[in-house]
């Protein structure tokens, strides 16, 4: 009886196949995590999946369009009246802003400060929000063909939302502020204190790290982009300080912040096409390694 009892191998369990594919998986994970060498596979897969993703984002759009269609004419007329009044008020403000901009330019010329380049914008729509426990990302419907490049900032009407981290031909992937270890250089609006803001993870407050216990910060302070990194245009609102913990045990204060832009709310956002003209070459790790190798070769 016992002799004939089926062993695991005689049952035909595909152990060999399992080990082979697990090895392939391990190789894939390693090349993705350490070497970032799988972008081509990703781009290929994304082009296959793009039509499906587009199709699946349609139902909600369709529902919206139907609702819009049944908005009555009278409601439209009311809205139009309201808006024309608003435009009157805004045009007055715009005149003032124009005056301020020209004055600002003139003063900057006097002081010989570099001019801020104008920020162009590109409207985009979120296709979907990948379900992934370790990252906070959205995929938008503009890509390489629209002139989008990796690193461009993303904003909504209220403030900065995140940054483009991967570009495909017709879509691109945006990493949101809440992503763990996402960092953005900021300036405290009230006193100009420079700091770096970090993401902590899904629905956790953002953290202002490396802050002295005695730093002049207060709950309710606004944090704007500083523009020092050359990635984000200066003066865009990012977050508000919500809590400061100046415990004596740790060397620094623990500062929690809330993003100003509503991160998980709307379908539409804006890509900021921004290239400052005072760019300095960024030292990269790979170059220094190459340099060292060259030095070694030279020594030999």
């Amino acid at each position: 009886m016992f002799r004939n009892s089926p062993s695991l191998f005689r049952q035909g369990a595909p152990l060999l196949k399992l080990f082979f594919f697990l090895l392939v998986c391990a190789a894939l994970i390693f090349s993705d995590y350490r070497l970032h060498a799988t972008e081509k596979i990703r781009a290929f897969g994304q082009t296959i999946l793009f039509p499906l993703q587009q199709l699946l984002s349609k139902p909600s759009q369709f529902a919206q369009n139907t609702v819009n269609y049944f908005v009555t004419r009278s409601a439209m007329r009311l809205e139009l009246n309201k808006q024309s009044k608003e435009i009157e008020g805004l045009s007055f403000l715009a005149n003032q802003a124009e005056y301020l901009i020209s004055e600002n330019e003139h003063l900057k010329k006097l002081l010989r400060l570099p001019q801020q380049p104008a920020v162009k914008t590109l409207a985009a729509e979120i296709i979907y929000n990948p379900n992934n426990p370790i990252s906070q990302k959205v995929v938008i419907n503009v890509g390489e063909s629209d002139g989008v490049k990796a690193g461009m900032p993303i904003a909504s009407d209220l403030g900065i939302l995140g940054q483009i981290t991967r570009v495909f031909s017709n879509s691109s992937e945006v990493t949101l502020l809440e992503e763990r270890d996402f960092s953005i250089p900021v300036l405290v609006e009230r006193n100009g204190l420079r700091a770096a803001l970090f993401g902590v993870g899904r629905s956790a407050p953002l953290e202002l790290r490396y802050i002295n216990n005695l730093a002049d910060l207060d709950v309710g302070d606004y944090l704007n982009t500083s523009g020092i990194d050359g990635t984000y245009p200066p003066g865009m609102p990012v977050a508000i300080i919500t809590k400061i913990d100046r415990s004596s045990e740790s060397s620094g204060a623990i500062v929690s912040c809330r993003p100003i832009a509503k991160i998980n709310h709307y379908r539409h956002l804006v890509v900021l096409i921004y290239s400052p003209n005072n760019q300095v070459p960024v030292p990269t790790e790979s170059e220094t390694i190459k340099h060292k190798l060259k030095q070694k070769k030279g020594a030999q």
Binding site: D32, L49, P130
Partner: peptide
């Protein structure tokens, strides 16, 4: 299919496959 799902969820390639 696992690799396809990894691309879809922008996960490290191979996680869903495993």
């Amino acid at each position: 299919l696992g690799v396809l799902m990894d691309i879809q969820t922008s996960q490290y390639l191979g996680i869903h496959a495993i």
